Amino acid sequence: MTTTLRETKDALVRRAQRQMRDHFGDSQLTTRQKLALTCRVLFDGGHDAGLAGQITGRGEEPGTYWTQRLGLGFDEITEDNLLLVNEDLEVLEGEGMPNPANRFHSWIYREREDVNCIVHTHSLHTAALSMLEIPLVVSQMDTTPLYEDCAFLKDWPGIPVGNEEGEIIASALGDKRAVLLAHHGQLVAGGTVEEACHLALLIERAAKLQLLAMAAGTLQPLPPEQAREAHDWTSTDRRHQANFAYYARRALRNHPDCLTEGTTVR
């Protein structure tokens, strides 16, 4: 006999949150493994633009982070060919050189102690939307993790290899988790690799939806109260962990060379 059909929405939300805490958790993968998987996930998700874009994750020592080697595409990244660099982009571990554009990652990590992973790509639909010089509009339920959480940089500062660009992009991001960069692409900043990976997929989907909807008619806004509720409901560690585990399993089936042989994702 049912016992929940008369429960309030708040009670059902709390019940679901308890169940997610019981059933989902950290994958026990290393940061390097998560970053390598994220590169493959995003490659499959339409974020490939040749050698453009950087995915980074904080290292154990302050002022260090892992990133891919310049010259390798997202589909070639493995846990073994990532580089550990410092804020000056000097290689501390690994072989090769990092992308010089990683400099603005150093600025964001300095400004945002809560950020542990940054994904910057020139994914097709975010890049197309950026050409219109208009902000991202979140108007569909699946993309509400970005509701009131995506900034907009309207003025293109040029190639992002100088400290000036680092200051500009870090300032534009502010305290949000994402920013659309006009004439450039997108950037998301997550507290975990799982969060950043999920948000990067979502911002590309949101941009695609926005372009499709704009071509068909006029975008209609979400009710703010419900949109904020959905933002918070979907923006939890357990949600990010569950989403990432699915994306990672799929990526590992497509790219078994990504991780050391025998590594599995729960």
Rank of each mutant, 00 (worst) to 15 (best):
L129Y: 00
V137Q: 14
D175C: 10
V137W: 03
V137D: 07
F152I: 01
P145V: 08
V179W: 02
H125Y: 13
A127T: 14
K176M: 12
A128D: 01
M141I: 10
W156I: 00
Q140P: 00
H122V: 05
V138R: 09
S171V: 02
Q140R: 14
A151C: 10
V137S: 12
I169S: 05
C150F: 05
T126Q: 09
S123P: 01
F152W: 05
P135F: 04
C150K: 04
K154W: 06
I134F: 00
P135L: 03
D149M: 09
L180K: 01
I134R: 13
L129R: 02
P135K: 02
T126A: 14
Y147W: 12
H122A: 05
A127G: 08
W156S: 09
T121P: 02
E167N: 09
G174H: 13
D175R: 13
E165W: 01
M131V: 06
A127S: 14
I169N: 03
G162S: 15
S130Q: 05
T143V: 11
A178Y: 04
L153S: 07
A172W: 10
E133W: 03
L129F: 02
D149Q: 15
P160W: 06
H120C: 05
P145M: 11
V119R: 04
T126L: 03
H122K: 09
V137E: 14
T121A: 07
G166P: 06
A127H: 02
E148Y: 11
V179H: 05
I169G: 00
V119M: 07
R177N: 13
E165M: 04
P145N: 10
K176S: 12
G162F: 12
L153I: 11
K154A: 15
K154R: 15
E167F: 10
D149E: 15
Y147A: 06
G166F: 10
Y147C: 02
H120F: 04
I169C: 08
G158V: 05
A151I: 07
I159P: 07
I169R: 04
A172Y: 02
R177M: 08
D175P: 07
A151R: 10
R177H: 11
A178Q: 03
H125T: 00
S130A: 15
I134S: 09
P157I: 06
E148H: 15
D155L: 07
N163S: 14
V137H: 12
E133R: 15
R177I: 02
S139V: 08
H125W: 08
F152D: 00
E133I: 09
T121L: 01
T126H: 01
A128H: 01
S130W: 02
I118Q: 00
L153A: 03
Q140E: 15
L173T: 05
I134D: 06
D149L: 09
D175F: 06
I118T: 10
T121G: 01
E164N: 13
V137I: 13
V179R: 00
I118M: 09
L180C: 06
P145I: 09
L173N: 05
M141E: 14
P157D: 12
C150L: 05
I168E: 00
